[in-house]
Write a protein that binds this DNA or RNA. Structure first.
Lengths: 200, 200
DNA sequence: ACATTTATTAACCATATGGTTAAACTATTT
DNA sequence: AAATAGTTTAACCATATGGTTAATAAATGT
């Protein structure tokens, strides 16, 4: 571990605590403890809990969005993008297991605040991809489908396992090893499933 | 609205508040207000917040599980079960929009407690369905696939939209009407997608 | 070296929150 | 009708929690 500025320490501790416990469950004292500083420092660098939360949310949002944009705004084919996104997203989330759930949770609980982000530059923006899907449909490369439904299928199949980990593992009776194996398999299986359903 | 016993009032109020705000975000006073009774009554009928939460969790779990079991333990074919489950689950969740997210959230935050339920009678138990899938594979009716992966696809495609409503609507830029329309379409589209991927 | 700004802490404070209690009110029993 | 048991409330209580303050320590500028 390298020396970090106090402000960075605080943000990292806040990320850790907020992502695990959410806004309502997080405690300022716990964040201070994890950052190994006095609680007053939190308010010195970040005015209050809400502001600190917003910094954490912004960081999470900014970390998450590129995984959608990079893939979707590249100049690859629809098929290639589906393959690339699945692999890149599952790998990313396996390294950041709390992130999708945190985002989903806080967006649901704080829709108006979250909508500030969806308007912005950094927001995931699949519009170009949606257009591309329509173009490939017109060209006869893929079968007709609502681009938004295709995207929703892609997001659902990749993300749900991580958001609902506990429920999934409980119902399907999966230990951690089996779960991870399945996630690796899904990197191949999901694109196959989706591409197969739209290719002519 | 019919007259309900105070205990029922409390449980209903608790369901409403806990499902929207989760264990950490829920306030005993808010539950009392919603039930229109004195806060002390909560402790009269339910010892403490934890116990009240557990009653709510149990109710949610018991309400949710049959939608999996009824379909999966019927004597229909795999194809028919996929069709039935999708329709029944999406309809159910559109009427109970907070339920899946609440369960997922609290199972994630309280794995050991939740595991008490996964062992029990009422737990969603897809083992018979998994065996049926293997049988139909052997009989050559459907293509080889890990039954657990098929189930995970089914759960993902049906549930994710409701768990990540805010994120989905934000990214895909959906108003409430369009979202609902898409959910209706998915009752048809999801079984098509899944059946098509496994039928020979 | 001295002054000034910046960073950090211990001790506090106000309020929110889960929980308790004693009294009152309402059936129910005898 | 009196006694008993069950239900409900207002007022409290202890603690947790977010936030502040005043004093101190460390860094920076002159």
């Amino acid at each position: 571990m390298k020396d970090q500025s106090t402000e960075e320490n605080i943000l990292n501790a806040a990320i850790s605590v907020f992502q695990k416990k959410g806004m309502a469950g997080a405690r300022m004292q716990e964040i201070a403890d994890e950052a190994k500083i006095n609680k007053a420092m939190l308010h010195y660098y970040y005015k209050n809990k809400q502001k600190l939360f917003e910094a954490v949310f912004r960081q999470a949002f900014e970390k998450f969005a590129p995984h959608i944009n990079e893939v979707f705004n590249s100049d690859k084919s629809v098929f290639e993008k589906i393959i690339k996104f699945t692999d890149s997203y599952i790998s990313f989330v396996m390294e950041n297991p709390y992130l999708p759930n945190f985002l989903i949770q806080e967006i649901n609980n704080n829709t108006e605040f979250a909508n500030l982000f969806f308007g912005s530059e950094i927001a995931p923006n699949p519009i170009r991809f949606e257009k591309q899907i329509e173009e490939e449909i017109e060209k006869g490369i893929i079968k007709p489908i609502d681009p938004k439904q295709l995207l929703l299928n892609l997001f659902s199949l990749t993300a749900f396992s991580f958001v609902g980990t506990g429920l999934v593992r409980g119902i399907l009776n999966l230990d951690e090893k089996k779960f991870k194996t399945m996630m690796e398999e899904r990197k191949i299986m999901i694109p196959e499933l989706l591409i197969n359903s739209i290719k002519k």
